[in-house]
Design a binder for these strands. Structure first.
Lengths: 348, 348
DNA sequence: TTGAAAGCGGTACCAG
DNA sequence: CTGGTACCGCTTTCAA
């Protein structure tokens, strides 16, 4: 059901010329009034203002963008709005956009490289002055190319060495380590993991950091105790059922994200285990649901708000390659938020 | 921290002229190639296409919008993106936008009439071909005026008689009635309400419908058992504490929305009551959290997705006042989703 | 099949 | 302080 180019054209609206004609002045003067320009007599200013109001005149941003070469828009590419994580990301960009008096242009990319590329192209067509891109599907080289074409493009949640000064990213590996330390501090030694089945690097990094830290203390992670599933509540439930079925003992589960963690808890309780008394569950993200769930989730806070605001600010201030010489990089760290889903291991 | 008009101008990008010059053809021909126009020789088409690719040429949507008087954008005004309800609304509009090959322009309005008006103005400046407006603050007459100026504007979650063919709304009163019927069918007779403190009409309508339906069966609603608070989780907790403190007995609570309902449950359990065994709790909206919460929420499903899609489609097909003669109106009804937070009253 | 040229609605420079 | 005007990048007649 693709309606190619459908949609009616905008009805004729009053233009600057209409205003000028009716006010008996030149368009130049009207333009000055619109922009609060300096050299207009108060008398002209008042008359023109009144007429603009009477006519319900609204300047055309497209025309303005064309001549000024500034669209006053900032673009965001995210997979979709229904995921609160991405909605928050967009929201934070919006906060910055407002500060700069700019409009938010949203492009959702679903889950394919093509659709990501398409989303970006649309934003470039619109000549956004900044683009915040959350890409998981496009390969590194495509992004590097893109950055060359669009200097004011910033990547969020991704790290690429050769354009690292445009990458706002979270240290997932360190996140895994923090998780491991927390669980170890609670004396857990038999730990399971519920990870995402998608082949993006985040889950791998978290897992790697997690394992590394455990092994530092001589704790191994049985491969059978790592289950991969869809990174949502159902995936969490399913993975937990497998975990339970395999029969290996564990006293804690590190989930890829909060949604999975909630699924994990559900499955655990359905099978007669109590969280955190029998099994501790650790999430990741610290979204709203982490506070809603019962028990409330102990989880790693993902500072997406901060990161998105940084991304927007950075993008807006990226004039051209010349300025990218700054050696700044933008690594963020998750931090532990202790709530109720983890507790001291009570099995010796 | 308002950065007036800051932000660098867009770097010079290659234009249609560049392409034309390098290809040794006129801009007209390039334009034809871009738009897959009919009268171009295959040879020219190929050469120009290649050059566009080599140059990384991307047409300027602003220029195009100007001359074609079609921006290919669709605007959405919502209070904010962090609320999943509004994020869903925006998402559904986006779904339609994609079908029509249009871009989503988002304007957040926070919580004041001025900022709503401002958000709308910005979208009109952008010459969106359709605007979906969720307004709670602007008075009826302002909206009626707006509709006159912007025929392709559609209101969502609001009903104004004189422009009812542009209103996509939910029958909140009926929602209240459905809620009452459900609770009565479970034999509850002492019922409390936790409502929103904001003076928008939704909470009032729900409450009215609720009371009306109760009184039909001869059940009264003690004014002391109606508490008003912020329409979020904390508000729900607070309101419940007041309810508990006032000492009047009740076996069920009808909350203004899911967030409040979850707060209600928390407060109830903190005070030793079990949901739904001791007290039933009924929510409204049926957002994600209704499924995450424990117990999972029995709630009234708000078909916001459907409504938003309808709104977008309607707006896009609204050419001018002439066509608004259609007598169609767009009332939607919530429906009950039974989950775990309500149960038969076990107090005689 | 092609190109020249007239705008679309503004801005900004220059002259008066 | 004001007006005339040359663009901004692209589409679309109209002729050739």
């Amino acid at each position: 059901m693709l309606h190619k180019m459908q949609g009616k054209r905008f009805p004729n609206m009053t233009t600057i010329k209409d205003v000028a004609r009716i006010a008996g002045v030149s368009v130049a003067s009207v333009s000055r009034v619109i922009n609060n320009g300096p050299k207009v007599s108060q008398q002209t200013r008042d008359r023109v203002s009144k007429i603009m109001l009477d006519l319900g005149y609204t300047p055309n941003a497209n025309a303005r963008a064309l001549v000024k070469r500034k669209s006053m828009t900032i673009g965001v590419v995210i997979p979709e709005l229904t995921d609160p994580f991405f909605a928050n990301l967009a929201h934070s960009v919006d906060v910055i956009a407002r500060q700069y008096n700019m409009q938010l242009l949203l492009s959702t990319a679903l889950q394919s490289a093509d659709s990501e590329q398409e989303a970006i192209n649309l934003l470039i067509e619109q000549r956004c002055q900044a683009i915040i891109l959350h890409s998981k599907k496009l390969p590194d080289d495509a992004l590097i190319l893109l950055c060359k074409k669009m200097p004011q493009l910033v990547l969020i949640d991704r790290f690429i060495e050769s354009i690292k000064h445009k990458c706002i990213w979270l240290d997932n590996k360190e996140g895994g380590k923090i998780a491991a330390r927390h669980l170890m501090s609670l004396k857990h030694r038999n730990i399971a993991c519920v990870s995402s089945m998608y082949t993006i690097e985040d889950p791998l990094l978290r897992l790697t950091g997690f394992k590394d830290e455990l092994s530092k203390s001589g704790i191994g992670l049985d491969d059978g105790l790592i289950q991969y599933a869809q990174p949502n509540q159902q995936g969490g439930e399913k993975a937990t059922q497998y975990l339970l079925a395999c029969g290996k003992p564990f006293t804690a589960i590190f989930a890829y994200n909060d949604a999975m963690a909630i699924g994990v808890i559900t499955a655990l309780e359905d099978n007669g285990f109590r969280v955190p008394y029998d099994v501790s569950v650790l999430g990741f993200d610290d979204g709203l649901s982490a506070r809603y769930s019962k028990p409330r989730l102990t989880t790693l806070h993902y500072p997406i708000d901060e990161m998105a605001q940084k991304a927007a600010t950075l993008a807006l201030n990226l004039v051209n390659e010349a300025q990218n010489n700054n050696a700044e990089t933008y690594k963020y760290l998750p931090h532990l938020v202790k709530r109720e889903s983890t507790a001291m291991c009570n099995i010796k």
